[in-house]
């Protein structure tokens, strides 16, 4: 089945895909388990999964005979790591500036 290239808006516009991602936000699931929750043909489920995969929303991994889908949260975690880092960075730097300014006054 041909899989159209969709932008992120189009990817999330579909209620079935949103429901799939909501389910995957709880835990990774094999494509078969995902498919059971939806009243659609297996090729139709595969197409949705391919669309989400192509748009970078999920990763797919073969474990045994099952193909597991996982919501890609790496991007979010990575960003959070950086934000914490810079948060501390700025806090320290602003304190350094305070020390510097105060010393300047004492000297003058």
């Amino acid at each position: 089945m041909a899989v159209p290239a969709l932008d992120v808006f189009q990817v999330i516009a579909d209620p079935s895909r949103r429901e799939m991602m909501r389910m995957l936000s709880e835990k990774s699931l094999p494509i078969n388990s995902l498919a059971e929750h939806f009243d659609m043909s297996r090729p139709a489920v595969s197409k949705h999964i391919k669309i989400m995969y192509n748009a970078g929303f999920i990763s797919i991994e073969d474990i045994g005979r099952e193909r597991y889908c996982t919501l890609k949260k790496d991007g979010f975690d990575e960003l959070q790591k950086w934000i914490s880092f810079f948060d501390n960075f700025w806090k320290t730097k602003l304190k350094d500036l305070e020390t510097l300014l105060n010393n300047k006054i004492k000297k003058s």
Binding site: G56, F57, F76, E78, L79
Partner: peptide, 10 residues
């Protein structure tokens, strides 16, 4: 900007 849009959606 990194993953920003995804974060919003998520």
């Amino acid at each position: 900007k990194e993953a920003n849009f995804n974060v919003v959606i998520f």
